[in-house]
């Protein structure tokens, strides 16, 4: 399948805001029109073509190449199609996206998938802070969709998450799943400290190790093999996450909390013994 390819012309060090780079916007546009899309470079608008070499025939599917560390908001609000990024991506990647798929070869900046409502975000490298979380003041963060990170995620994954699935192959920074309202967060590496602080509902599943004990407002309930995990683990396995047979056959310790907020959340910890 052919795609529209955007190759960064130079090393972009000043901030670029590329919220015009979505399949929705470029669908049906000819190469020239894509090159003329406005893109914010620092405080000035520039034609996309000034910063990126455009090739391909104007298909909705996008391929981005080059170091895009300072290129922010790629795929923001997209509803369909695919974006494949070969390199790093900047802040707010796929924020508020509602559908389609973004894949990133390497690392992404903070707030990737913030307020995401649908679609899929696959990150083969590491994710920055606030992955799938909420912007300041908002009651709800991610409300749907799937985020899969092969590497690690920084602090505050899935904060105020309301629905959806986040899986991190590596470790997380602190406060994973803080203030979660619902949804599922799977961590295969080390689960960062203060997991689930202020969570109302939702599941945090630790399949690796723990950085520290659970907060005092979480209480041990039992050791069991939750049936629903089978569905999730099999799903994650299909998407290449490091699920082992032991995870599938294992027992899990269940902690419930945070009792200060509602207490109906859970941290499930894979029991190695």
């Amino acid at each position: 399948m052919s795609a529209t390819v955007l190759q960064a012309r130079a090393n972009l060090t000043l901030p670029v805001e590329a919220d015009s780079i979505t399949p929705d916007r470029i669908d049906g546009l000819q190469q020239v029109a894509v090159g003329n899309l406005p893109i914010l470079y620092g405080r000035e608008w520039a034609p996309l073509g000034d910063l990126f070499a455009v090739s391909g025939d104007g298909r909705a599917d996008l391929v981005l190449e080059g170091d895009l560390t300072h290129v922010k908001r790629i795929g923001q609000g997209m509803t369909r199609g695919t974006i494949a990024i070969h390199g790093n991506a900047g802040l707010h990647l796929g924020s508020q996206m509602r559908g389609g798929e973004i894949t990133v070869d390497s690392n992404v900046g903070g707030w990737a998938g913030a307020h995401m409502a649908g679609g899929r975000l696959r990150i083969y490298g590491d994710a920055g802070p606030m992955l799938g979380s909420a912007y300041p003041g908002e009651r709800r963060g991610m409300t749907g969709g799937v985020i899969l990170v092969e590497g690690s995620a920084a602090a505050r994954v899935g904060e105020r998450m309301r629905r959806g699935l986040i899986a991190v192959g590596g470790s997380t920074g602190d406060f994973p799943g803080a203030r979660m309202i619902a949804g599922s967060l799977f961590v295969f590496g080390q689960l960062g400290p203060r997991a689930g602080a202020g969570m109302k509902r939702g599941s945090i599943v630790s399949l690796g190790s723990l950085a520290s004990g659970v907060l005092p407002t979480f209480q041990y309930s039992c050791r069991f093999a939750p049936g629903f995990l089978q569905l999730y683990l099999r799903y994650l396995l299909r998407w290449g996450m490091p699920v082992t047979p032991a995870h599938l056959q294992g027992q899990y310790q269940r902690y419930t909390g945070d009792i200060n907020t509602l207490g109906k959340g859970e941290i499930l910890i894979y029991d190695q013994h």
Binding site: A197, L215, P216, T217, N260
Partner: peptide, 22 residues
């Protein structure tokens, strides 16, 4: 600090805590 503050919130509402020291 966070552990302490969460514990205080629980204690203010007379919610049970199992930790012996925080």
């Amino acid at each position: 600090d966070l552990e302490i503050l969460t514990a205080l919130r629980a204690l203010v509402h007379a919610r049970p805590l199992s930790a012996r020291a925080i």
